[in-house]
């Protein structure tokens, strides 16, 4: 079997993964919120009060809640209002994003822009498909490449090798990761999602956005993030490590029931959002 990596290689790869000792800890506030909601008696107001205690974090979350992402006609002025309007999972996703924002920005130039672009594109595809969970899918798009952040922060030398391989413009980032490390950012994303106890609507797109046909728990959400990743790369917005448009999973495409003529309305929804999202890029 030529494609089967030798057992020794796999063992070596596992060792590489173990070298990533400082897997970032789940942001304290996210862990607290998760614990709170495990208790069915917790009210939205209580969760809102917890988040509101951190004023910087609240400001960041409200800025995202009021951004072109969600296109709200009225201003969301408090966390508890955001919880009511956007729902609990979305606000939790925004809290998580705000907490890891610095990490994403420091790890790789252009990755934050790629992330918000993919989020907006996920929202646009979900909107076109008439999904009522468009906001949650958007947050999945926002966090889909978190594995790359962990890699960049923990294995800088290997990441330089990956960058060298990608430079010729013919190799995708995850292919180069697999060549150098024998695993890629999507597997690390899975690990991180487990470690942080993230919901499947975030975990599965993180793990399977390059192989959406394998998704079982959130197949549609994963498929939408897969298509959104392709659309935002086609636009050349941000930088996901390479500048190539990856192949589309036909199984995912067909499952969503998308047509080729849908690209125009999707891009029409996306375009005005992207230009105004430059504002959130400058969050500090």
């Amino acid at each position: 079997m030529p494609s089967q990596p030798a057992i020794q290689d796999r063992v070596q790869a596992k060792r590489e993964v173990r070298r990533i000792k400082n897997l970032p800890t789940v942001p304290g506030i996210v862990a607290k919120i998760s614990r709170m909601v495990e208790n069915p008696e917790t009210s939205a107001a209580e969760v809102g009060r917890l988040i509101s205690q951190d004023q910087v974090l609240s400001a960041k979350v409200l800025r995202m809640a009021n951004s072109a992402f969600f296109g709200m006609s009225r201003k969301i002025s408090s966390i508890s209002q955001a919880l009511v309007i956007l729902g609990f999972e979305v606000v939790k996703g925004l809290v998580l994003t705000s907490s890891v924002f610095d990490m994403i920005q420091k790890s790789m130039a252009g990755l934050w822009e790629h992330s918000i672009g993919c989020a907006a594109a996920s929202g646009a595809v979900a909107t076109l498909l008439g999904r009522d969970d468009a906001e949650e899918i958007l947050v999945a798009g926002l966090l889909h490449d978190l594995g790359k952040v962990v890699l960049a922060l923990n294995l800088p030398e290997e990441m330089n090798l990956v960058r060298e391989k990608v430079k010729n413009g013919k190799v995708l980032f995850y292919e180069a990761e697999n060549e150098v490390l024998d695993f890629d950012h999507s597997e690390l994303g899975q690990w991180l999602a487990e470690h942080w106890n993230l919901p499947e609507s975030l975990a599965e797109p993180m793990r399977l956005h390059h192989r959406p046909e394998k998704a079982v728990l959130k197949p549609e959400c994963t498929a939408i993030v897969h298509i959104a990743d392709i659309i935002i790369r086609a636009k050349g917005f941000g930088n996901a490590g390479d500048l190539l448009v990856p192949p589309v999973s036909m199984a995912a495409w067909e499952m969503l029931g998308l047509r080729k003529t849908d690209f125009l309305p999707i891009l029409d929804i996306l375009e005005p959002k992207l230009s105004s999202l430059c504002d959130i890029t400058s969050i500090d």
């Binding site: 413009g169 086609a234 050349g236 190539l244 448009v245 192949p247 080729k260 125009l264 891009l267």
Partner: peptide, 24 residues
């Protein structure tokens, strides 16, 4: 645009995406 799409010439869905980008 050509450089970004260098890998996917045979996929008709992606050709449609490229055409749409070019049209816009």
């Amino acid at each position: 645009l050509d450089a970004r799409f260098v890998r996917i010439e045979p996929q008709s869905v992606l050709q449609a995406l490229k055409k749409t980008m070019l049209y816009l």
